[in-house]
Amino acid sequence: METETSAAALEPSPGFAKNPEYRITLERPEREFIATLQGEPIAQTTRAIILREADYPPLVYFPPEDVRLDQATMSDKDTYCPYKGMASYWNFGTEANIAWSYEEPFQEMLDIKGYVSFYVDRLDDPVI
């Protein structure tokens, strides 16, 4: 399944309303992804979503049930994206704010609601 979001959505986010040409593409590849930190898998799934946005490197978003959230603590950090919404952050072990999720994303990004992504440069190996 491939989904492309744009200003054509019914209720555009502030970012898409101001910049209708901006594109974020979501893909559901049929393969396994594993995120490993300090030698331990902290996320493993065959149900990932790959998010491609502008010139940024692609990101893997893991379904929350496939992430070892029992090994994580919620951070007090949050950030705002005008295209996706407010991101909440997670700490794993000694790695503060290594992961984030959009618990209440804008309408165009509902497919990633609750999914967890990681800063890949802080993991043991690249996820993609």
Rank of each mutant, 00 (worst) to 15 (best):
R68W: 01
D66A: 08
L10R: 09
E11Q: 09
T36I: 14
T79E: 08
P126I: 13
S117A: 14
K113E: 10
M86Q: 14
E103S: 11
E30V: 02
R68Y: 02
T3N: 05
E103C: 08
D111Q: 09
G85K: 06
E53I: 07
F16L: 15
S88Y: 05
A87Y: 09
L123D: 12
R28G: 03
G114A: 05
Q107Y: 00
D125M: 03
E32F: 01
E32S: 11
I34H: 03
D124W: 05
K113C: 01
I49R: 08
R122T: 02
T73V: 02
I42K: 02
I128Q: 11
Q71F: 06
S6Q: 09
E40N: 12
T79S: 15
N97V: 04
F118P: 00
Q44K: 14
R47A: 12
T3A: 06
E21R: 08
I98E: 04
D55E: 15
G15W: 11
A99M: 07
M109A: 15
A72Q: 02
S117T: 13
A96T: 10
D124I: 03
S13P: 15
I128W: 09
R68H: 05
C81L: 04
S13A: 12
E53Y: 08
E95H: 12
Y61I: 05
G39S: 13
F92D: 11
D76V: 09
A17F: 01
A9E: 12
E108A: 13
F118R: 07
D70P: 03
D76P: 04
P126H: 09
E53A: 07
N91H: 11
R122Y: 02
F33R: 01
W90P: 02
A7E: 04
L69E: 05
S75P: 08
P63V: 01
I98A: 04
F62Q: 03
T5F: 11
E30K: 07
D124Q: 09
K18E: 15
M86Y: 04
N97Q: 07
K18N: 13
T79F: 01
G114M: 11
Y83Q: 11
P20V: 05
T79G: 12
S101T: 02
N91R: 11
A48C: 11
G85V: 07
D121N: 13
D55I: 05
M109E: 06
Y89H: 08
D124V: 02
D111T: 04
T25G: 06
K77S: 15
M74E: 14
R23H: 10
K113G: 00
F118W: 11
E104P: 00
E40T: 09
E40Y: 08
T45V: 02
R68P: 01
Y56N: 08
E65F: 02
D124M: 05
A17L: 10
A48R: 03
Y102K: 06
S6N: 15
G15H: 12
E27P: 05
L110F: 05
F106Y: 15
Q107V: 01
E4Q: 14
A17W: 00
F118I: 04
V120D: 15
K113D: 00
P20A: 12
L26F: 15
L59R: 15
D124Y: 06
